[in-house]
Design a binder for these strands. Structure first.
Lengths: 207, 207
DNA sequence: CGGGGCTTGTGAATTCATTCACAAGTTAAA
DNA sequence: TTTAACTTGTGAATGAATTCACAAGCCCCG
């Protein structure tokens, strides 16, 4: 299968969200043009994105909303339930733990881990906080698919090394650090500082 | 001035972080090669990125760490203090309010806004929470440069319209929504659902 | 049943981003 | 002073992503 660009996958995500919106409003078909307007892109882009995976539309008519939504869920792998653990039970960890979007999309948070004895044994938004010492053992037992990293930047690489060694293949990183891992491990980094500096740059260099 | 790609600006941010690291370790020069290794890119990429803004290095020697750091701060607009307000005093707002990276980089959080009477008048990590009703009035008085949006998805566009009308030119959005604003308003969106679905896709479509 | 009005799917063209490759400049050592 | 070892800065080449543009298919109306 041809390699799919990151930007394409992000747009597919966006399309799915719009389709779900249309679905609840009971609309049955949608054109690439409407999908594009909604997402700030072009109709050609929408059709090209979808064309990597098959042809789901009807010429002259557009796409069936429920069918396309289903196809996108399938493509994005949202059919099954993903097992998630959070490492780092601080403020960001707490914010993520209560985020409804997780469960809604089939992401099931099993546990959180921390090294602070005051937090271990308590609950974070209903999720048990465990000792980070048992991280490897628990990973081997619970087989989480995704690790969400919300530890300080200078501890992040260490945790990555540990969870990768224990068999984890996907990491969502909120630590402000450049992480290194084998190619078969998918890492997405969300870096607030970078986004802010992007805004700072935009404000500074406006023509 | 030639348009600078978003990806370039993000890398400049990363370079600056590495340089600060080198700075505290007392190193005085660095080559594009070392900078590249650290950030998972190539030396040619580093040099090309910097070349858009001038030539800061010495052939045969590399870059002066403090000088290049200074230049990057200047380019990214980190010399001045940016005034920030947070709209939405929920968990994510709280996590951001306590995030040290903000103040460290010159982002000064003035206030948070919410529509929940239980929150209004209290403090969020030391930052006053005000009634969202006074948002326009306060924006006109305090002239914040950046609005951080942490309201629910279906309220986000409404807040954008309000703050844009009041004169705000930069928005950092954490709501899962596609926002629309005039071209002279810079918007960066951080969408957790999208990142997670990117991981889900990667786990599903591994060759 | 035929024509007009839409809309898809996709090669080709274009635009944008990254990598290559090398002349030119710098340092240090002999 | 000459030479060897480095490293930058940058056009040119390559590669990737987006946009164009249009044939082909579908629906509806008369």
């Amino acid at each position: 299968m041809k390699r799919i660009a990151d930007s394409t996958v992000r747009r597919l995500s966006a399309y799915l969200r719009f389709l779900e919106d249309f679905e609840t409003r009971g609309l049955s078909t949608i054109s690439s043009e409407e999908l594009a307007n909604r997402g700030g892109t072009t109709s050609a882009q929408v059709r090209k994105d979808l064309s990597f995976f098959g042809s789901f539309g009807k010429r002259g008519l557009g796409y069936s909303v429920p069918e396309l939504a289903g196809r996108l869920r399938e493509i994005l792998g949202l059919g099954k339930e993903w097992r998630v653990v959070i490492v780092g039970a601080g403020k960001i960890g707490a914010a993520l733990a209560q985020y409804r979007g997780f469960r809604h999309r089939g992401f099931n948070i099993l546990a959180a881990y921390d090294n602070n004895p005051d937090k271990i044994g308590r609950k974070l938004e209903g999720i048990p906080v465990r000792d980070i010492e048992q991280l490897e053992r628990d990973i081997q037992r619970d087989k989480p698919d995704i690790v969400v990293l919300t530890v300080p930047g200078d501890e992040a690489q260490d945790v990555v090394d540990r969870v990768v060694k224990a068999g984890v293949k996907a990491i969502l990183n909120f630590a402000p650090a450049q992480l290194h891992a084998p190619v078969d491990v998918a890492i997405k980094t969300v870096n607030m500082a970078m986004e802010l500096e992007g805004l700072s740059f935009a404000l500074t260099n406006r023509e």
